[in-house]
Design a protein around this nucleic acid. Structure first.
Lengths: 184, 184
DNA sequence: TTTAGCATTTAGAACGTTCTAAACGTTATG
DNA sequence: CATAACGTTTAGAACGTTCTAAATGCTAAA
């Protein structure tokens, strides 16, 4: 690869890994996806080790995570025993999927929490006036949370019904070369 | 405090800290905010150490973080030399503010990244056909990112213009007791 | 059946983060 | 001025995370 282009990509890699780390993707997953996103060809594990200067074990583990997230996929290259991977080229799809699954996860966690709290809350048996007030205040605040959570859930459902996809627009025009490679 | 109520709150604390840790708040900040949110009275550093069984140093550092985020504030209690803190009781305000500042931060980071990449990209000087294609593909994909980022920014602006506040509803009805304490 | 070329798993090293306890600084009070 | 009652800072311990290198497992070809 052109040396200056590689340097330019490195600038990207450095920054994107930092950004993604705050979205629950670690450095390596972010950088792996980035080089696949930029690459015209699917890459093998060894290609990726070489490009990012990291061990094969790391690439192996992290690339499978990305596969589970559905943002890269294994492609077969005729005439090679290696596994090759290609990145999803429709970046808006990747991001929307990720946001959706994060939202869904948060919703479940909060559902579980509220359920657990409500299971306990009734067995609280206040002994005096002050304790009664404490219990009442606690319930009031948990109810406020439940209320807010319900509204947030409605909002998420609205987005999931395609609103976000329509706005951010999906359907990449970027074409892969993998078909060419497959018959190489 | 009523023992059973405390146990119920503990269930909440355990879960909420896990949830918040994925939003860039650590355990302690999450739990500190939670006990202040639930408490009818402002609490001192020592109160919080005692309640969460953690060191004073930790409380000191983390409570000031929360103060910077604007979700707790120091209140003065007449007749005491201690610092007391009260949590913002309008939970939707806290969450909306946090989401907004996260979004704003991501936007700046991506702006910076794109700027840095575009600064470099023109100096790439492809030497042959393959390198030319690589460079073209790279530019195409960075442009796609820029495009998506622009749309996302528009969406965020839409939310910031009050849409989210209207939907999630702001204005808590929960009253603090601090006025009482201040004249104690 | 053996070997070569892979991917995967694992044990341990390196790292960053965040806790605690103790030292420290500051302010009010007697 | 000395002391007590605070909050803050710091040095180091404990912890989880994630990397690497080596061992292992698998599969295809000879």
């Amino acid at each position: 690869m052109n040396e200056k282009l590689e340097k330019t990509q490195d600038i990207f890699l450095e920054k994107i890994s930092h950004i993604c780390s705050e979205f629950g993707l670690n450095n390596i997953m972010a950088q792996l996806y980035a080089i696949l996103y930029f690459s015209n060809n699917p890459l093998s594990l060894d290609d990726m080790c070489e490009r990012l200067k990291i061990s094969k074990g790391s690439v192996s583990v992290n690339i499978r995570m990305l596969e589970r997230y559905g943002v890269v996929r294994r492609v077969w290259v005729k005439g090679s025993r290696r596994d090759y991977y290609a990145g999803e080229k429709d970046i808006s799809k990747v991001i929307i999927d990720r946001l959706k699954s994060m939202a869904q996860r948060r919703i479940s966690e909060i559902d579980n929490m509220l359920k657990a709290v409500y299971d306990e809350i009734d067995s609280v048996d206040p002994q005096n006036g002050e304790e009664k007030e404490d219990a009442r205040a606690f319930k009031e605040r948990v109810d406020a949370l439940k209320n807010l959570h319900h509204k947030a859930q409605t909002l998420v459902k609205l987005f999931n019904s395609g609103l976000l996809n329509n706005f951010l627009g999906t359907g990449s025009k970027i074409k892969q070369k993998e078909e060419v490679l497959l018959s190489e």
